[in-house]
Every structure is written in structure tokens, then in C-alpha cells.
Amino acid sequence: MQAPPLDLPDELGPFYRLAQHRPRCLGVQNRLLPLSELQTDPKGEMLVFGEENQGGFFWSLLWTLDGPEADPTIWFREYDEPPIAEQEPLSGFLIQFSLYEASVGAEYVALCDQVTEQQLDRLTEGLLPVPLRPFCAAFPTRFYVAPGLVLHVSDQRGDAGFSVWAGATHRAALALLGGTPLKWIRFDG
């Protein structure tokens, strides 16, 4: 793999400038690669710019000699599987990535799995849905927010319902979720 020249899509420049002052923007669970680690895939067709924490999947964008596309499609690739397009282009992907990392990297969390649709409806009643299409091709994930709180909901495979993970800046922000009768794996509220 070779290091590409730094002709990046417009959306990545401000994101990397922000990360110079706030390195956590690059991720705490999964990560967006620092500029010095950007690379092309073995075929030289994709610019790999993000990866899962255990190396199981990565995110990339089409690499061309014509220069970067405006707000390009992001490609999710798991192991040796064919790449799958993320539902949001780079601009939406960066918002979703940031929300996901804010929830999993928070000091105060609440998590539960095997949540039914009815329980999920009740749990998200007082939250604002983020108006983007689902994030992450492997486990479609939607986001809900409230002051000091980010909640992400992932579809589980099969009939296992939903997985819910909330991250908060303060334990009091989790109080919005405490009234829903769930068997929490962890609840810091």
C-alpha cells in the first residue's frame, strides 16, 4: 500500500483541522486514520481512511486521478467481502461517525440488547431522531439525541430485536431513559 497525496474531499479538511486540537474526534472505539496513516487499498482503487478497532472492517472512498469527488460515497468493507456503500455521503457519514463515537466513548452510559420495537418506541419518546439514513452497513444504526445525550440503536441480526447504547456527558442526562422497563446491561444514571 502506498501513501496517497493529500488531495482530499472538502469535507475531510475541516474535520482533520478540528482533530488537531481535539484528537478524540478521530474516534475512541473505531477510528478515522490520522492524515499520516491514510493509504490506498492493495489495488490502489480506494482511499482507506477509517477502521474498526479490531481491524474487522474499514471505510474508504473511491480513489481517482481526477481528484476528489464533492461529498463522495463512503464504502464499508468487512474482511474480504465486496464493499457496500454507506447510505450517507461523506458529510453525513462524518456526523454519524462522530455521534457513534460520542455515545460509545462517553463517561456515563446505558446499554441494553434484545429491545423490542414497542420498548424502543417508549425509550425514544422524549428524544429527537437525527434525520439521516442508517449508519454502518453491517449493523444499520440510527441516532437519537437530547441535551447531553446521544443514543444509538442498531438492528440485531435475526429476531433479536434492537441493541441500544446511550452515552451522556452527565449521569443526570440518562434520567430520560430510566423510566422504560428494560433489563439494562449497564445503566450509569
Rank of each mutant, 00 (worst) to 15 (best):
A3N: 10
A3C: 06
A3D: 09
A3L: 11
P5Y: 14
L8Q: 09
E11S: 09
E11P: 06
L12R: 10
F15N: 12
L18V: 08
L18I: 08
A19R: 13
A19F: 10
H21E: 13
R22C: 09
R22N: 13
R24S: 14
C25L: 13
C25K: 08
G27Q: 06
V28H: 01
V28D: 01
N30D: 15
L32S: 03
L33Y: 05
L33K: 05
P34Q: 07
E37P: 02
E37L: 09
L38E: 14
Q39V: 13
T40Q: 07
L47W: 14
E52K: 15
E52I: 15
E52D: 15
G56V: 01
F58E: 04
L61K: 05
T64G: 07
L65R: 11
D66A: 08
D66T: 02
D66W: 04
P68W: 02
P68F: 02
D71G: 00
I74R: 03
W75C: 04
F76V: 00
R77G: 01
Y79N: 11
Y79I: 04
D80A: 12
E81G: 03
P83E: 07
I84C: 09
A85K: 07
Q87L: 15
E88Y: 12
P89M: 11
P89I: 08
L90A: 06
L90H: 04
S91Y: 08
F93H: 11
L94C: 06
L94V: 06
I95A: 12
S98Q: 04
L99R: 02
A102G: 05
A102D: 03
A102E: 09
G105A: 05
A106W: 02
E107T: 05
V109L: 01
C112D: 08
E117K: 09
Q118D: 08
Q119W: 12
R122L: 13
E125G: 00
G126A: 15
G126P: 04
G126L: 13
L127T: 04
L128K: 10
P129G: 10
V130C: 04
V130I: 08
L132V: 06
P134K: 12
P134V: 11
P134D: 11
F139A: 06
F139L: 01
R142F: 00
R142D: 04
F143T: 09
F143D: 12
F143E: 12
Y144W: 15
A146T: 10
A146W: 10
A146R: 09
G148Q: 12
L149D: 09
H152Y: 14
S154H: 15
D155W: 11
G158F: 11
G158Y: 11
D159E: 14
D159T: 09
A160Q: 13
F162R: 14
F162H: 15
A166H: 01
A166P: 01
A166I: 00
G167Q: 07
A168W: 05
A168Q: 02
H170Y: 00
H170V: 03
A173E: 08
A175C: 02
A175Q: 13
L176K: 05
L176W: 05
L176N: 01
G178A: 15
G179N: 12
R186W: 03
R186I: 03
F187H: 10
D188A: 00
G189S: 02
